[in-house]
Simulated assay, not measured.
Amino acid sequence: MSEELPPVGKTAVGVAGLRALESGRADRLFEDPYAGAFFHAGRAIFEGQERDHRLGMVFAHQVAIRTRFFDDFVSGGTQTVLLAAGLDARAFRLDWPDGARVFEVDLPDVLAFKETVLSEKGARPRCERTPVPVDLRDDWVAAVKNEGFDPAQPTVWLAEGLLVYLSRDEAERMLTAVTELSAPGSRVSFEHRPDGDQDGLLERARQFGSEVAALWHGGLSGDAPEWLAKHGWRPETVTVAELSVRYGREPLDRTRGGFVIATR
């Protein structure tokens, strides 16, 4: 099954493994009952690759903090779009308000893999869940609208772990589309690394994951808050270190990296 995943799908399986590890901790920051199943179904993709194991450990703390932060961010949304939804199961594991609708946008192969595993587990979403199989570099806007997305309704947009895989032009095009689709009151969030390519976490990751690092194209680099402000958003930022303290974890990441949250 894992052999059918595209290269970026490999990172999704790895992240699922890290979420499974966090879910097994007594002091876990979240609980993902499906993460282990995703990793088990796709783990063959890592066989004989010790470097990938070490790369995963570099990101373990980041993934735990990121997942909890983004869980809290999407909480309460009545129309939510998960851009590059990957193998996270928020539609199945979070409490959603009545009438909430979640659109999961990702590559067809990734969503097909996800559907197979969730079906085998008998998973049932806790909201109205709509998978949208499309490449975000293609006309994903039309695809989402065709599935019933309402641009007149405030939307919660989440682009978890995505922008670093896009070129600056691709990131700007995607966020411009998000802006055009966002009614007043909409919110958006994604990773923010003010040091851009010099971010310490990325530099450490490159030591162990040349294959994964080759997929990174930088996104908006360190300019995300400025870009958002120029396009009608009110951005705020928070660092992984600050969130670590808030969540009762030792701050392990000595970079300034974190997340941007913006309101329309």
Rank of each mutant, 00 (worst) to 15 (best):
A64E: 02
A64G: 10
A64F: 04
A64H: 04
A64P: 03
A64V: 06
I65Y: 03
I65M: 09
I65K: 04
I65P: 01
I65C: 07
I65T: 05
I65V: 15
R66H: 06
R66N: 03
R66E: 04
T67R: 03
T67Q: 05
T67F: 03
T67H: 07
T67N: 07
T67L: 05
T67S: 13
T67Y: 03
T67I: 06
R68L: 04
F69D: 01
F69N: 02
F69M: 08
F69R: 04
F69L: 09
F69Q: 03
F69V: 01
F70A: 00
F70V: 00
F70S: 00
D71A: 12
D71V: 12
D71P: 11
D71K: 10
D71E: 15
D72H: 14
D72M: 12
D72A: 15
D72I: 11
D72F: 09
D72R: 15
D72Y: 10
F73L: 11
F73W: 11
F73D: 07
F73V: 09
V74P: 09
V74Y: 10
V74H: 11
V74S: 12
S75N: 11
S75M: 10
S75L: 11
S75D: 13
G76Q: 07
G77T: 10
G77I: 07
T78H: 13
T78D: 12
Q79M: 09
Q79I: 05
Q79A: 06
Q79C: 06
Q79R: 07
T80D: 09
T80Q: 09
T80H: 12
T80R: 07
V81W: 05
V81Q: 06
V81N: 06
V81I: 14
L82I: 13
L82N: 11
L82S: 11
L82Y: 09
L83P: 02
L83F: 12
A84H: 03
A84F: 04
A84P: 01
A85Q: 03
A85S: 15
A85W: 00
A85L: 06
A85R: 01
A85C: 15
A85H: 02
G86K: 01
G86I: 05
L87G: 03
L87Q: 02
D88H: 08
D88K: 06
D88G: 14
D88S: 14
D88E: 15
D88C: 12
D88R: 05
A89M: 05
A89L: 05
R90S: 10
R90P: 06
A91S: 13
A91R: 01
A91K: 02
F92I: 01
F92C: 02
F92P: 00
F92M: 02
F92A: 01
R93K: 15
R93M: 10
L94P: 06
L94S: 12
L94I: 12
L94A: 14
L94H: 08
L94T: 08
D95R: 15
D95S: 15
D95M: 13
D95K: 15
D95H: 14
D95T: 15
D95V: 14
W96P: 00
W96N: 02
W96Y: 08
W96K: 03
P97S: 13
P97M: 13
P97V: 12
D98H: 12
D98N: 11
D98Y: 10
D98I: 11
D98L: 12
D98V: 13
G99V: 08
G99C: 09
G99W: 08
G99R: 08
G99T: 07
A100R: 00
A100F: 03
A100T: 04
A100L: 03
A100H: 01
